[in-house]
Amino acid sequence: DETGKELVLVLYDYQEKSPREVTIKKGDILTLLNSTNKDWWKIEVNDRQGFVPAAYLKKLD
């Protein structure tokens, strides 16, 4: 059920640097789980959840 889920576009590649982070690729469109922290957003990638720098993402309307 995708209702109410926010999507984000990945602006730059990011390689995870800790187990709490996930790797993302430029151009991916992913589900945003939590954006309350202005610097690190929690997203879902391939059934994995983790954090990436918010500056690497853009919210889609």
Rank of each mutant, 00 (worst) to 15 (best):
A54P: 06
K59G: 04
G27V: 01
Y14S: 01
V52R: 01
E44W: 06
E16V: 07
T36E: 15
P19H: 10
G4D: 11
A54Y: 02
Q49A: 10
D61V: 11
N46R: 12
I43P: 00
L11C: 06
V10Y: 00
E16H: 07
S35W: 09
P53C: 04
N34H: 06
I29G: 00
L9I: 11
Y12C: 14
I43W: 00
L7D: 04
L32T: 01
D28R: 05
V45L: 09
L7F: 15
D47H: 12
K59S: 05
I29T: 06
Q49M: 09
V8G: 02
T31K: 13
R48N: 06
K38I: 10
E21F: 04
L30Y: 10
L57G: 01
K17H: 08
V52S: 03
G50T: 05
E6N: 11
T3M: 13
Y12L: 10
E16C: 10
V45D: 08
V52W: 01
V22D: 01
K58R: 11
K25V: 10
K17Y: 04
V45F: 14
L33V: 10
R48D: 04
G4I: 14
D1G: 13
P19G: 09
N34I: 07
K25I: 10
G50V: 09
K38H: 11
V8S: 01
D61H: 13
P19Y: 08
T36D: 15
I43G: 00
S35N: 07
E21W: 03
K17S: 09
K25F: 13
Y56D: 04
I24F: 02
V52T: 02
I29F: 05
Q15I: 13
A55L: 11
K26I: 05
T36W: 07
L32M: 04
S18P: 04
L57K: 00
Q15S: 11
I24V: 15
N46T: 09
N37P: 04
D13N: 08
W40Y: 06
L33P: 00
E21R: 04
E16S: 14
D47P: 03
K5E: 09
T36C: 12
L7W: 15
D13G: 06
T31F: 11
D1P: 12
K59R: 15
V22G: 02
L11V: 06
I29Q: 04
